[in-house]
Design a protein around this nucleic acid. Sequence first.
DNA 1: GTATCTTCTGAAACGCGTTTCAGAGCAAGG
DNA 2: CCTTGCTCTGAAACGCGTTTCAGAAGATAC
Lengths: 319, 319
Amino acid sequence: MANIRDIAKHADVSVTTVSRVLNEHPYVSKEKRTRVHAAMKELGYLRNQQALTLSTGKTQRVVVILPYMDHPYYGLFVNGLAKAALEHDYRLVMWQTEYKLSEERQALDLLKHREVDGAIVLSHEMSFKEMETYRAYGPIAVATVGAPETISSIHVDHYASFVSGIHVLQEHGYEEIGIILSRSHSPSSLARQQAYFDEVAHAREQWIWTGYLTSEDGIRLAETFLSQKERPRALFFSSDYVALGFLGEMQRRNISIPEEVAMLGFDGHPISRAFGLSTMLSPNEQIGRQLFETTLAEMNGAIPEIHGMTVSYQAGMTL
Amino acid sequence: MANIRDIAKHADVSVTTVSRVLNEHPYVSKEKRTRVHAAMKELGYLRNQQALTLSTGKTQRVVVILPYMDHPYYGLFVNGLAKAALEHDYRLVMWQTEYKLSEERQALDLLKHREVDGAIVLSHEMSFKEMETYRAYGPIAVATVGAPETISSIHVDHYASFVSGIHVLQEHGYEEIGIILSRSHSPSSLARQQAYFDEVAHAREQWIWTGYLTSEDGIRLAETFLSQKERPRALFFSSDYVALGFLGEMQRRNISIPEEVAMLGFDGHPISRAFGLSTMLSPNEQIGRQLFETTLAEMNGAIPEIHGMTVSYQAGMTL
DNA sequence: GTATCTTCTGAAACGCGTTTCAGAGCAAGG
DNA sequence: CCTTGCTCTGAAACGCGTTTCAGAAGATAC
């Protein structure tokens, strides 16, 4: 395959001139420019991206780190990310961690080895302290709260969002509220618990269900919930998919929602609308887009940005 | 940042020796090996992946081309792909096309410009004829039927699968069957239509609904379906998400399923189980895994592989 | 004792595009 | 007429790791 030197020889110019033509540098005479173009066409020249990358030190890639690619929760983030990346002619390298710290480290090592220009972390096990050790090798943006000022953060303000969700429940007359969380030790779960205890007078430890992530978990939860003697009058989920699994299972058992228990989801995934799930709509696509854009800005010298987003109530029929 | 030559100087050996240490080549004396390791540690050496890539000509990346990253249908494929890629120390570059031919071309251009070693195409607008023009630059694997023998194909045999789905419906006593398709001109839709006409005695043109892709489309479909005078007794969907949207909307309208109309989905997405959707389970994660593995095999000289997979019935409560 | 291996080492070339630097030619400004 | 400035050009160095090739030293084979 022809390279820049072959073109130079064929067009009887220097490699510098060919490079200038490729980069549309103005200081090339019309005549040589056409000669170079002709040579490129004739030899079927294709610029070698790898060489360009080594030469410029810019990869035009960012790594996206997330636990599972097929979890619908991340789908909306990724969609926003993908659109923004494409617009700016960047490529997205996806790294699925399954919540393993070792995988996160490997993914961030791409930064160290100059395989990507930046990293976007949608969910992490790693401490911010450790994450900061990678910061010297490129910008990092996370979608979670609590980031230090060296790391950009575009996130849902889970505390404020949970507070507003609880207020929605209270406005509908529910006082005895339970909450469903994903992993118990994640920052978002902690913020949600805090909001729960701060805002719900009847808050109880045993009304916090932890470890529910998927729709199957939601199905399981129905059993667990119904077997409990003292039950809350409303459940506030932290994910629509868990809520939908629960809802489907309750329907199967012919248990009326919201009569038996009211439900409020969290995400606003399109499918929720079909089943009339009341939910808190989270601007995930927007967050994805902004995560990319802040990363890009940092690569061009901007300082890290911290931005908390809020959710809005989307009415359904489960309240 | 220290490079291989700095290390060489610091350890007082040649760059060749350093390279040999990096690659664990046996012919290096113990003594020099330790000296090199010490120098690398002292200077904090990090191998530059870009240089390695240029030098070896191998990128350790494949591009995955798909219309939407957040469509649940692709989630299972991508999960399988991601697992297989990680196991083999490959990176996945995701390219979202939104069904645009121009985006597909750009994505496949990565192959031409040596930015990736191979391409995996989950859905495409491009003709196989055009796709073959990229074949010279690296292996291509698709998840659709009809590929020429230069292109690997690991796909659901939509014809056979639709035939078996129709048989399931017929075994349940349904003869008047309608089908819901996504894009009308895709190869899978054509295969499904063919199966429909071949197997359903009461097949009717107006019982084929085309252009349904998302759960929202499923909601829309309910209205369209109910407004129709002569309706089939059963609907065979080509996607669980469309089916779920439809099912939710029917529930909202208090219309009994399967009494008013029976439903059979296609995919076997986890969430379907929660709502008792009867569906045809498709081995998408397995397909994703195999797509990667066949691509890898081709990079190592294997010949393209064509493999049709079949689906299995997963009982629910909508039949 | 000579021929043949095996082990170990490093200089130089390679992959390929970009950038720096020096210089030539020509026009405009004073 | 001289200075300054712009336009155009190419040689060489750079980014950095790998590979080829030639050769030295020591060990084994016959």
